[in-house]
């Protein structure tokens, strides 16, 4: 007896990457920054990561169970959200706050809008924004080597340039800040992994970072463009948050426009805003422009002279 054959519409073969492997590679690319965070901020940083990932995965599972939806926790996207949120938190954040922020990111920002692929802003960043407005003090409490202090960007904002850490410390991540944002070196390694595996293209990170470098130089920010791009959450934001598929434009042209917008907003907030840092809000605002950008950056259909749409 011959086995029945599967019959389906072509194509009959498929590229090796699926959603889960993509998310797994994002997690792998985030690992160097996480290890740097643990190295500089201690094992509490690891505990915060664990709390965020677990809270995200559990809340996604519970939501999908209650809403009688297919369980998609296995695609690892909730784990990526959890890890990214943890990277955007101070190492001293109380665990329960980290857990509440994770639940907000997954339930309100992601699932309320339809789950993976449908959310309009980056869940981790929106979760962070929610936490900053809810608990402003614990969310801006920075410690390094057991001593409380300001982040380099906060020092620049306050005008205390004398205490500014050196460029080397900034590069390796030995400065005050969020768990996963301080080590430019580790984040660049992650960028290389993502590029090598074809998970993202160079467009968004490069354009975003270059725009900030050029604009902060033009605006005459005191620390100089090299310092400016390595300080704060720019590398983390440009490499891992602004490149989130769901909340960034689908075409390369659109991605360049999006990254330019992120860079302009970040430079403006850093220079003129009340916050020392501007990466999170820049990306969140630009997330909202994505449908518009997508509408105006459609590729040209083969053989047609004008753009469609």
């Amino acid at each position: 007896m011959e086995r029945l054959l599967a019959v389906s519409s072509s194509p009959h073969i498929h590229a090796p990457q699926d959603t889960r492997t993509i998310m797994a590679w994002v997690l792998a690319a985030l690992a160097p920054a996480g290890l740097a965070g643990i190295y500089f901020f201690g094992f509490r940083a690891a505990a915060v990561m664990a709390v965020c990932i677990a809270s995200c995965k559990i809340s996604e599972y519970v939501w999908q169970k209650l809403a009688k939806q297919a369980i998609t926790v296995g695609d690892l996207s909730a784990a990526v959200t959890g890890l990214l949120l943890a990277y955007n938190l101070p190492p001293t954040i109380p665990f329960w706050m980290a857990a509440v922020g994770s639940v907000f990111a997954i339930i309100v920002v992601k699932q309320f809008f339809g789950g993976i692929g449908c959310n309009i802003v980056n869940p981790a960043l929106a979760g962070r924004a929610f936490m900053i407005s809810s608990w402003p003090v614990p969310m801006t409490l920075w410690t390094l080597d057991g001593v409380s202090g300001a982040t380099p960007l906060a020092m620049i904002k306050a005008g205390s340039m004398d205490n500014l850490p050196g460029l080397y410390d900034l590069f390796i991540g030995h400065v005050g800040g969020c768990i996963g944002e301080t080590s430019a070196a580790a984040l660049l390694l992650g960028f290389a992994i993502l590029l090598y595996k074809g998970i993202i293209s160079w467009h968004i990170p490069t354009v975003y970072i270059a725009t900030v470098a050029v604009l902060t130089a033009i605006m005459g920010r005191p620390a100089g463009p090299l310092y400016e791009i390595m300080a704060g959450g720019l590398f983390l934001g440009a490499i891992f948050m602004a490149t989130d598929y769901t909340t960034s434009p689908m075409t390369k042209k659109g991605q360049v426009i999006f990254a330019l917008g992120c860079g302009i907003l970040t430079s403006l907030i850093r220079t003129f805003g009340g916050y020392p840092e501007g990466v999170s809000y820049s990306i969140l605002i630009m997330n909202l422009t994505v449908p518009l950008i997508d509408k105006f950056t459609k590729p040209r259909i083969f053989g047609e002279v004008k753009k469609h749409g």
């Binding site: 599967a6 073969i13 699926d18 996207s77 769901t246 689908m250 390369k252 083969f302």
Partner: peptide, 27 residues
């Protein structure tokens, strides 16, 4: 080799747009 996995939600990665030789937006 035969690809028989089930469908899941579009994650808007844009690979289909880059791959389409006709300049369409499959997603």
């Amino acid at each position: 080799v035969a690809h028989l996995a089930p469908e899941s939600a579009c994650i808007r990665c844009g690979r289909c747009i880059e791959g389409c030789p006709m300049g369409l937006m499959p997603s």
